[in-house]
């Protein structure tokens, strides 16, 4: 069952500014690309780095440690040296403009 966790107001999340939040006790990185928000587990699957410290480009986040790319939408690996996908979480925006992340 998915539990939805409030992580902030929609306006808190801006293009080019990944944010580190917590949802259901898990570290989550929130990314905005134009009108869409994406949520990934905030830990690289390769090195000890937070994806919320990464650079966002072409629908991917680049890990700050070794420049591996994860797909923002799915968490899938898009480049070496990564081999393991990162967990992706569903995101929704409520009628009152709050951002919620779903954790199962």
């Amino acid at each position: 069952m998915t539990t939805w966790h409030d992580v902030g107001a929609e306006a808190d999340f801006e293009d080019g500014c990944p944010a580190a939040v917590e949802a259901g006790g898990k570290p989550v990185a929130i990314f905005r690309v134009e009108h869409e928000l994406f949520a990934l587990h905030d830990l690289c699957t390769h090195g000890a780095a937070r994806l919320s410290d990464g650079f966002v480009e072409d629908g991917c986040v680049e890990c700050p440690l070794h420049q591996g790319l994860f797909d923002l939408r799915t968490g899938a690996v898009r480049s070496a040296p990564l081999t393991e996908a990162v967990r992706s979480y569903p995101v929704r925006i409520t009628d009152t403009g709050r951002v919620e992340v779903g954790v199962t």
Binding site: E14, G16, C17, P18, A19, D53, G54, F55, V56, E62
Partner: peptide, 8 residues
């Protein structure tokens, strides 16, 4: 450019 933006 805004505060909290990332640069490479």
């Amino acid at each position: 450019l805004k505060v909290r933006e990332m640069l490479r």
